[in-house]
Design a binder for these strands. Sequence first.
DNA 1: TTTTTACTTTAGAATTATTATAAACTAGAA
DNA 2: TTCTAGTTTATAATAATTCTAAAGTAAAAA
Lengths: 135, 135
Amino acid sequence: MKKVDIFKKLRSSGLRPTKQRVEIAKFLFDRDTTFHFTIESLENHLTKKTTCKFALATIYNTVHAFKKAGHLSEVDVRGKKTYFDTNITNHHHFYDNETSELIDIDASEIVIQKIPKAPNGKKIKNVEVFINLKN
Amino acid sequence: MKKVDIFKKLRSSGLRPTKQRVEIAKFLFDRDTTFHFTIESLENHLTKKTTCKFALATIYNTVHAFKKAGHLSEVDVRGKKTYFDTNITNHHHFYDNETSELIDIDASEIVIQKIPKAPNGKKIKNVEVFINLKN
DNA sequence: TTTTTACTTTAGAATTATTATAAACTAGAA
DNA sequence: TTCTAGTTTATAATAATTCTAAAGTAAAAA
Ligand SMILES: [Mn+2]
Ligand SMILES: [Mn+2]
Ligand SMILES: [Zn+2]
Ligand SMILES: [Zn+2]
């Protein structure tokens, strides 16, 4: 991903390209495959692998701005911390409870044959399949 | 559900039948249909509809004991609060984001035709389908 | 370029859900 | 009854997240 694209992610999220935000965007989007992260894991990476300083609030604010702009999604995982996902396509997850690891499942890999109709006056927005793993 | 059964729930959870615990168990299990709740909604009910006093810690402890004994399950819902479920069968959920309401879907109402195999050395423990609703 | 303005970062405080603590209380065994 | 282990409770501690307001900076205006 080029610098231009990083700036595009920032601009389309209503964010000025400050050095903190550029570092965050580079880490999140300048890569070949998508991944899952928490604010904590993101902060760990940033403090270890970059030179600039990051206030926690800056990380929270930037991640939320990306999410609001549709550049990140959130995954529901049991537990206290929020998991984010750079894969914003419709997809599903394996969850390994031992390692707390999320693994993507492409939407095409799961086919649902039968599904109930939505209740009175409601529509189905999306269907999320979550597969818990054991050893 | 008879008093005997309430006592059985408590005993099988390793809990003595104190007045607080009996009230909690009666509210959770002495009814015809299962339901979903949070610690907060449970506390609201208990303080309004019963005469005895409940420390928050007692509610947390009792609910967790029921969960550990398998009398309650936990549902993953986006948000900060933990949702519990008196339906302990394998089942799925509709989630109405407008009202924050969970609606049960019986396991038989969803049929999955195709599912990926679990990664290396792992097995599938269970499959949870979560259907988000919109208006 | 300088000035100005609006936006941004930051440290620390506040908030919220949850869990831990330890003293006063109680169910049930002896 | 007495005794003991288990229980309730108020309160403190913890952990993730959000808020605040002062100091700093990007980019528009002059
Ligand atoms: Mn969650
Ligand atoms: Mn949750
Ligand atoms: Zn994913
Ligand atoms: Zn349910």
